[in-house]
Protein backbone atom coordinates (compact mmCIF):
# COMPACT_ATOMS: atom_id res chain seq x y z
CA UNK A 1 0.00 0.00 0.00
CA UNK A 2 2.82 2.28 0.94
CA UNK A 3 4.74 1.65 -2.27
CA UNK A 4 1.72 2.52 -4.44
CA UNK A 5 1.40 5.81 -2.58
CA UNK A 6 5.12 6.48 -3.13
CA UNK A 7 4.90 5.74 -6.86
CA UNK A 8 1.97 8.14 -7.23
CA UNK A 9 3.91 10.89 -5.41
CA UNK A 10 6.98 10.29 -7.56
CA UNK A 11 4.89 10.40 -10.73
CA UNK A 12 3.39 13.75 -9.67
CA UNK A 13 6.82 15.19 -8.85
CA UNK A 14 8.09 13.98 -12.21
CA UNK A 15 5.18 15.67 -13.99
CA UNK A 16 5.69 18.85 -11.97
CA UNK A 17 9.38 19.15 -12.76
CA UNK A 18 9.08 18.25 -16.43
CA UNK A 19 6.21 20.73 -16.63
CA UNK A 20 3.42 18.71 -18.21
CA UNK A 21 0.58 16.84 -16.54
CA UNK A 22 -0.51 14.94 -19.67
CA UNK A 23 -1.50 11.31 -19.26
CA UNK A 24 1.49 9.94 -21.13
CA UNK A 25 3.96 11.98 -19.11
CA UNK A 26 2.31 10.89 -15.84
CA UNK A 27 2.59 7.28 -17.00
CA UNK A 28 6.26 7.73 -17.79
CA UNK A 29 6.80 9.30 -14.35
CA UNK A 30 4.97 6.38 -12.79
CA UNK A 31 7.20 3.87 -14.61
CA UNK A 32 10.40 5.68 -13.60
CA UNK A 33 9.12 5.99 -10.02
CA UNK A 34 8.15 2.33 -9.98
CA UNK A 35 11.64 1.28 -11.06
CA UNK A 36 13.20 3.57 -8.46
CA UNK A 37 10.98 2.19 -5.69
CA UNK A 38 11.74 -1.38 -6.82
CA UNK A 39 15.46 -0.71 -6.60
CA UNK A 40 15.28 1.10 -3.26
CA UNK A 41 12.50 -1.04 -1.76
CA UNK A 42 14.44 -2.09 1.32
CA UNK A 43 15.26 1.44 2.36
CA UNK A 44 11.73 2.83 2.07
CA UNK A 45 9.34 0.18 3.26
CA UNK A 46 10.31 -0.13 6.93
CA UNK A 47 8.38 1.79 9.62
CA UNK A 48 11.69 3.20 10.80
CA UNK A 49 11.99 5.06 7.51
CA UNK A 50 8.56 6.58 8.03
CA UNK A 51 9.46 7.71 11.54
CA UNK A 52 12.60 9.21 10.14
CA UNK A 53 10.65 11.12 7.50
CA UNK A 54 8.44 12.54 10.24
CA UNK A 55 11.51 13.67 12.15
CA UNK A 56 12.98 15.26 9.03
CA UNK A 57 9.75 17.20 8.57
CA UNK A 58 9.79 18.32 12.19
CA UNK A 59 13.41 19.44 11.82
CA UNK A 60 12.54 21.35 8.64
CA UNK A 61 9.60 23.07 10.36
CA UNK A 62 11.75 24.15 13.30
CA UNK A 63 14.39 25.38 10.88
CA UNK A 64 11.98 27.48 8.79
CA UNK A 65 10.51 29.07 11.93
CA UNK A 66 13.96 29.92 13.31
CA UNK A 67 15.01 31.26 9.91
CA UNK A 68 12.16 33.78 9.82
CA UNK A 69 12.81 34.82 13.43
CA UNK A 70 16.52 35.33 12.72
CA UNK A 71 15.91 37.45 9.63
CA UNK A 72 13.46 39.68 11.52
CA UNK A 73 15.90 40.06 14.41
CA UNK A 74 18.80 40.99 12.15
CA UNK A 75 16.55 43.46 10.36
CA UNK A 76 15.57 45.08 13.67
CA UNK A 77 19.21 45.32 14.78
CA UNK A 78 20.20 46.91 11.48
CA UNK A 79 17.52 49.58 11.79
CA UNK A 80 18.64 50.70 15.28
CA UNK A 81 19.97 54.25 15.19
CA UNK A 82 22.84 53.58 17.63
CA UNK A 83 24.21 50.37 16.32
CA UNK A 84 27.18 49.81 18.63
CA UNK A 85 24.99 49.37 21.70
CA UNK A 86 22.90 46.71 19.98
CA UNK A 87 25.75 44.46 18.89
CA UNK A 88 27.97 42.55 21.26
CA UNK A 89 29.86 40.17 18.98
CA UNK A 90 31.66 37.11 20.31
CA UNK A 91 33.24 33.94 18.99
CA UNK A 92 32.26 30.98 21.12
CA UNK A 93 33.47 27.39 21.14
CA UNK A 94 30.51 25.03 21.12
CA UNK A 95 31.37 21.41 21.97
CA UNK A 96 29.97 18.97 19.41
CA UNK A 97 28.27 15.72 20.29
CA UNK A 98 27.42 14.82 16.69
CA UNK A 99 30.37 13.17 15.00
CA UNK A 100 29.84 12.38 11.32
CA UNK A 101 30.68 14.89 8.60
CA UNK A 102 27.12 15.00 7.28
CA UNK A 103 25.69 15.85 10.70
CA UNK A 104 28.27 18.55 11.36
CA UNK A 105 27.63 20.08 7.94
CA UNK A 106 23.89 20.15 8.55
CA UNK A 107 24.33 21.60 12.03
CA UNK A 108 26.75 24.29 10.82
CA UNK A 109 24.39 25.31 8.02
CA UNK A 110 21.43 25.51 10.37
CA UNK A 111 23.36 27.47 12.96
CA UNK A 112 24.28 30.01 10.31
CA UNK A 113 20.63 30.59 9.43
CA UNK A 114 19.27 30.84 12.97
CA UNK A 115 18.97 33.86 15.27
CA UNK A 116 22.19 35.60 16.21
CA UNK A 117 24.64 32.82 15.37
CA UNK A 118 27.01 32.07 12.50
CA UNK A 119 29.40 29.15 12.27
CA UNK A 120 32.98 30.19 11.57
CA UNK A 121 35.18 27.12 11.88
CA UNK A 122 35.34 23.52 13.00
CA UNK A 123 38.28 22.38 15.08
CA UNK A 124 40.59 19.93 13.30
CA UNK A 125 39.53 17.01 15.51
CA UNK A 126 35.81 17.76 14.98
CA UNK A 127 35.22 18.19 18.70
CA UNK A 128 34.38 21.89 18.73
CA UNK A 129 32.40 24.18 16.46
CA UNK A 130 33.35 27.86 16.59
CA UNK A 131 30.27 30.03 16.41
CA UNK A 132 30.12 33.79 15.97
CA UNK A 133 27.32 35.44 17.90
CA UNK A 134 25.92 38.82 16.94
CA UNK A 135 24.55 39.76 20.35
CA UNK A 136 26.01 37.62 23.11
CA UNK A 137 24.17 37.73 26.42
CA UNK A 138 24.89 34.42 28.15
CA UNK A 139 27.48 32.01 26.80
CA UNK A 140 26.28 28.89 28.59
CA UNK A 141 22.64 29.53 27.72
CA UNK A 142 23.56 29.83 24.05
CA UNK A 143 25.53 26.59 24.02
CA UNK A 144 22.69 24.79 25.79
CA UNK A 145 20.25 26.25 23.27
CA UNK A 146 22.15 24.77 20.32
CA UNK A 147 22.70 21.42 22.03
CA UNK A 148 19.06 20.96 23.03
CA UNK A 149 17.53 22.35 19.84
CA UNK A 150 19.10 21.45 16.54
CA UNK A 151 21.77 19.06 17.66
CA UNK A 152 19.24 16.79 19.36
CA UNK A 153 16.89 16.82 16.39
CA UNK A 154 19.71 16.13 13.93
CA UNK A 155 20.80 13.19 16.03
CA UNK A 156 17.27 11.84 15.96
CA UNK A 157 17.22 12.06 12.17
CA UNK A 158 20.58 10.37 11.71
CA UNK A 159 20.37 7.81 14.50
Amino acid sequence: MNTVFLVVILALVWAGISGSFSGLNLLLGGVVGGVAVLVLREAFASPRALRRIRRIISLAALFLYELVVSAVRVAIVVMRPNLSSAVRPAIIAVPLTVKSDAEITLLANMITLTPGTLSVDVAADKSVLYVHALDMADKDAMIADIANGFEKKIQEVFE
Partner: peptide, 14 residues
Amino acid sequence: LPDLYTRMHAASKA
Protein backbone atom coordinates in the same frame (compact mmCIF):
# COMPACT_ATOMS: atom_id res chain seq x y z
CA LEU B 1 27.72 46.87 10.91
CA PRO B 2 31.23 47.21 12.37
CA ASP B 3 33.19 44.17 11.14
CA LEU B 4 33.16 41.33 8.63
CA TYR B 5 31.64 38.72 10.94
CA THR B 6 28.72 40.86 12.05
CA ARG B 7 28.14 41.91 8.45
CA MET B 8 27.97 38.26 7.54
CA HIS B 9 25.01 37.87 9.89
CA ALA B 10 23.09 40.46 7.89
CA ALA B 11 24.15 39.12 4.49
CA SER B 12 23.54 35.45 5.15
CA LYS B 13 20.27 35.64 7.10
CA ALA B 14 18.38 38.63 5.78
